[in-house]
C-alpha cells in the first residue's frame, strides 16, 4: 500500500508530503505518525508541506488532528513551508488552524523543535546558574 515515509532524526520525526494526497493516504499518515511517536518516544514532529499545491479542509483537519494527538503523546508538531497561495486559500476557506505551530522552512522548524524539546537545554541552563 502507498505510504508517506517518516524519517527519524534523534527524538524528532520528519515527514515530507510531496504527493497529491487522497483522503485515505492522509489518514494512513495520521495512524503511522501517532504509532511512531508512541513507539519511539519522539518529542517533536516536523511536517514539510512546501510541495503541496493545495490544502483543503480535509488535509487541514488531518494536520490539526495530528498536532492534537501528538500533543497528547507529549510531542510538539510544527508544519513548515506552506505556500502563499495555499495559505490565502485556506484562510478564505475559513481554516486558520489555530492549534498548529508553523515555520517558514525545515531549517527554522527544526530550530524551533530543538529549542522546545531538547533536554540538554535545561541542563545547560542549570549549569549556567551554578556558575
Amino acid at each position: 500500500m502507498e505510504r508517506i515515509p517518516i524519517l527519524r532524526m534523534g527524538n524528532l520525526l520528519l515527514v515530507t508530503i510531496q504527493v497529491d494526497m487522497h483522503d485515505k493516504l492522509a489518514l494512513t499518515l495520521q495512524d503511522d505518525l501517532t504509532a511512531k511517536i508512541a513507539d519511539l518516544g519522539a518529542k517533536g514532529v516536523l511536517i514539510d508541506i512546501s510541495s503541496l499545491e493545495i490544502v483543503d479542509s480535509f488535509i487541514g483537519r488531518t494536520l490539526a488532528n495530528i498536532a492534537s494527538m501528538a500533543r497528547v503523546l507529549d510531542a510538539q508538531t510544527v508544519v513548515v513551508g506552506m505556500q502563499p497561495a495555499v495559505a490565502i486559500t485556506l484562510v478564505e476557506l475559513g481554516m486558520s488552524l489555530p492549534g498548529i505551530r508553523t515555520a517558514l522552512n525545515v531549517e527554522s522548524g527544526m530550530e524551533y523543535l530543538q529549542q522546545t524539546t531538547s533536554p540538554d537545554l535545561s541542563e545547560e541552563a542549570d549549569v549556567d546558574r551554578e556558575d
Binding site: 495559505a87 490565502i88 517558514l104
Partner: peptide
C-alpha cells in the same frame, strides 16, 4: 486580518 492569518500559516 486574513493577510496576517495567512502569514502565520506560513510561519511568519
Amino acid at each position: 486580518l486574513k493577510t496576517i492569518t495567512a502569514a502565520r500559516l506560513m510561519g511568519a
